[in-house]
């Protein structure tokens, strides 16, 4: 039997475990598992600058989304402004609903913060082929954070809430809402232009 050498070109499909070696690829080309059709890898050697720019924009937008009023409720003569994090603190003030508050905090505040700050910490030094201490551990954390951030789902929740309260009071969207919507676009562009697999290869190559 011929011993199987492991090379950096070895690829295994995460869905069906088919083993093959990566073909030589052009910019923007995609590797799809020949056996099960899983999307494995996109070759984008030039993507680093672009995704770093999107992450910086996402960071600014996330900051903006958290300081300006998100929605304003008007009922009769009073109006009430809501800031993004109040969807967490509002639940804490309700008796017995702390677990729910923690979940909402993870999905809409903690995971996105980890994801955005983590990517900044990883991508900016990588532009000079450097890596800062803790990059390896942080990269693992970033992949987890990516799975648990639910900003897009939250946005759908906002739209449903508008319609749900529409008949009882007037809800208007604040500056924060638009920053939030732009953030979702920027973040998905950032994540789309740098594949986590590629990020790992870059981290390994950096010093």
């Amino acid at each position: 039997m011929r011993p199987t050498g492991v090379t950096t070109r070895s690829l295994a499909c995460h869905d069906c475990d088919a083993l093959f070696s990566a073909p030589v690829m052009k910019e923007g080309e995609r590797v799809i598992c020949p056996r099960c059709g899983a999307n494995l890898f996109i070759n984008r050697p030039d993507s680093l600058q672009r995704s770093a720019a999107y992450v910086v924009a996402s960071a600014v937008l996330f900051f903006a989304a958290n300081i300006f009023p998100f929605m304003t409720l008007k009922q009769e003569y009073r109006s009430n402004q809501m800031v993004l994090f109040q969807s967490v603190t509002g639940l804490i003030h309700q008796k017995d609903y702390a677990p729910l508050a923690i979940l909402v905090a993870i999905f809409t505040l903690i995971a996105p913060t980890l994801l955005i700050l983590g990517l900044l910490y990883l991508l900016l030094p990588l532009m000079r082929r450097r890596r800062l201490p803790g990059a390896v551990a942080l990269c693992r954390l970033v992949s987890t954070a990516r799975r648990w951030q639910m900003l897009d789902v939250y946005l759908l929740g906002v739209l449903v809430s508008l319609l749900k309260l529409g008949k009882l009071a007037t809800l208007t969207l604040g500056t924060s809402f638009w920053a939030f919507a732009a953030l979702i676009i920027c973040l998905s562009l950032a994540l789309g232009s740098i594949d986590l697999r590629e990020l790992w290869a870059r981290i390994e190559a950096a010093k």
């Binding site: 929605m71 409720l73 009073r78 009430n80 809501m82 109040q86 969807s87 967490v88 603190t89 509002g90 639940l91 003030h93 309700q94 729910l100 508050a101 979940l103 909402v104 999905f107 809409t108 639910m150 789902v153 939250y154 759908l156 929740g157 906002v158 449903v160 809430s161 749900k164 309260l165 009071a169 809800l171």
Partner: peptide, 13 residues
Amino acid sequence: VFVVAILVAVVQL
């Protein structure tokens, strides 16, 4: 779940 969180927050007064 987010709808609940948002409605509770915005109608807190």
